[in-house]
Design a binder for these strands. Structure first.
Length: 254
DNA sequence: AACCTGCCCAACCGCTCCTGG
DNA sequence: ACCAGGAGCGGTTGGGCAGGT
């Protein structure tokens, strides 16, 4: 087949993006959109491959990106959505406005997966760091990017902005524990650990609603054409999940 | 104070999916 | 129906940093 390498690695820059590159990319996308990622770097005068530009935009420069630590609600949503969807990070990201698949993936691998590991006591999950490093200060120029309405932004924004607005500041990973662990801990240490019913009903309702049109791919799948079996699968997992949830609430506290 | 260790996250890689010719 | 090219996705990596010794 002879697929051309994504970046014909001649003279193309790699590694971390500079603020200047960010600025150029944002300015170009503001002006011209990103209909063709492959051609974009040339048009914008960037020595990057299109893939790299796309990744940078999606994961970092998009105006609707929400920076900062995941809230407890978001983490729990990730856990539950992962239950339902597996490693389909983009589908999970579509449910979490402002969060990217990459970010969710990172959080999953660094925190949430460990939480769910049953063999390790929760006490081991205490972080070494008291404060996450970069999250506090807004990343480079993204903060100063003032976008008008970007028609190309495929923000999977949905009614549950409540999710994203409930910014209960930063997540305290030391205190946080999974639903499972919490069940085991009898929720004791978490006086305020109580997911509102409305949260889950919203989240789940969304899952149901979306599965009827373009499930999971929210804004990112322009075609919005899910696999024929997606709805069935979704129903299955949804039922399974809801069953599991109700079972969990009935668990005897250990 | 210096070194070591482990964590975090941005970015890369390679594969699959999708679309147009 | 087939092929090629582009986009999207998930897995992985490595540099930088914070905490520990």
């Amino acid at each position: 087949m002879g697929r051309a390498p994504c970046c014909e690695k001649m003279g193309l820059k790699r590694g971390p993006w500079t603020p200047e590159e960010d600025r150029i990319l944002v300015a170009h996308i503001e002006r011209h959109g990103h209909s063709n990622w492959r051609a974009l770097p040339k048009q914008a005068g960037l020595l990057r491959c299109g893939k790299s530009c796309r990744l940078r935009w999606i994961n970092y420069l998009r105006p609707d990106i929400k920076r900062g630590n995941f809230t407890r609600e978001e983490e729990d949503a990730v856990i539950q959505l992962h239950h339902m969807l597996g490693n389909r990070w983009s589908a999970i990201a579509a449910r979490l406005p402002g969060r990217t698949d990459n970010e969710i993936k990172n959080v999953w691998h660094t925190h949430l997966k460990k939480r769910l590991e049953p063999t390790k006591p929760a006490t081991q999950q205490a972080p070494k760091r008291k404060q996450p490093k970069k999250q506090q200060q807004p990343p480079q120029p993204a903060s100063e990017i003032v976008m008008l309405d970007d028609p190309d932004t495929t923000a999977p924004v949905s009614p549950e902005q409540s999710l994203s607005t409930s910014t209960t500041t930063s997540t305290d990973y030391s205190a946080a524990s999974s639903l499972e662990n919490n069940a085991a801990d009898s929720f004791t240490s978490e006086e305020d650990y109580q997911i509102e019913d409305s949260f889950w009903s919203e989240t789940l309702a969304m899952a149901v609603d979306d599965s009827s049109d373009s499930f999971g791919m929210g804004g990112e799948d322009a075609s919005g054409a899910p696999a024929p079996s997606a709805n069935d699968d979704m129903d299955f997992w949804l039922k399974l999940f809801m069953q599991a949830s109700s079972d969990m609430q009935n668990l005897p506290q250990i």
